[in-house]
Amino acid sequence: QAVKEIKVATVALPETLLYQCLVKWQSVLAERSGGELKVKILGRGVMGGDREMIEACRLGTLDTAVVSGSVLSPIVPQFIMISLPYLFNNHDEANAFLDGPVGQKLFEMLEPTDLVGLGWATWSFRGIWNNVRPITKPEDLKGLKLRCLETPLDMSITTHMGAIGTPMAWSEALLGLRQGTVDGITTTYGLGYPLKLYEIAKYATRTKHYYESAPLIMSKKLFDKFSPKEQKIIKESGAEALLWARKEQAQFDDKSKALLEEKGVKVNSLTPKAFAAFRELTKDVYVQFRFKVGPEFMDEALAFIESLRKK
């Protein structure tokens, strides 16, 4: 039987864990399928940005992609849930959430849009990189122009936290930070080190203001072409490789403080009090997006996290 090749695209650079987990998937899948299923990685965004890759997978012009979970929200609004501010306290909660019934449900919601969710990787929690001062409390953000994504969610969170949300194309953001067009950028921890943000920003704060999941999605058109046995192998190997990446990411987050400080960045985490203060400030965001996400779904998701914390 001929070897079947699955092309998987990502905007991630080879240095990132997100890319590494695709390499892992490559080897796990090759092993499980006895070499009959092969993964070819197209990294560095050569196949376009997240939105374009999602479209391409839906149209069947691309096989597979790892994308930011929040970028799926224009087609499945419930994906906003994962990225609501201060939803998770830590990686363990996020992992339990994604691997639990809610994560499963989100993948089920993808199916009618011609996408199949294979598993969850992560870009980790968002933090703030800036050149003005360390962020230790909400007041520190006052008057700071922070580059944010051109989405209502990111704009809203940044503004509620107290900063001036400044939308800017990613292509211009790093230069903007260096030249002072913006005072800071918010980005996930997974990116800070490989993007060499330490060269252009003085302060890094682990605000952990929201979690950016990175689901691996496959074109349903393609997925349906595989035999049930192959489908099972693809899903299992994908989930396994991505879970590995999420665990690695949690460890890397802890390690990165030392790595960054070595490069001269002042890194700080929030005190529990500041964390709670930011959580309080961004409560309104839940109200704002409640109807978009669906009240029932939101309550169910919140209840699930509540039950995790009780354990």
Partner: peptide, 18 residues
């Protein structure tokens, strides 16, 4: 051909249907 598929999503900021 692609219109109905892409049109089900809206642009993230202005909400203009793709």
């Amino acid at each position: 051909v692609i219109y109905p598929i892409v049109a089900s999503a809206a642009s993230p900021c202005l909400g203009i249907s793709m």
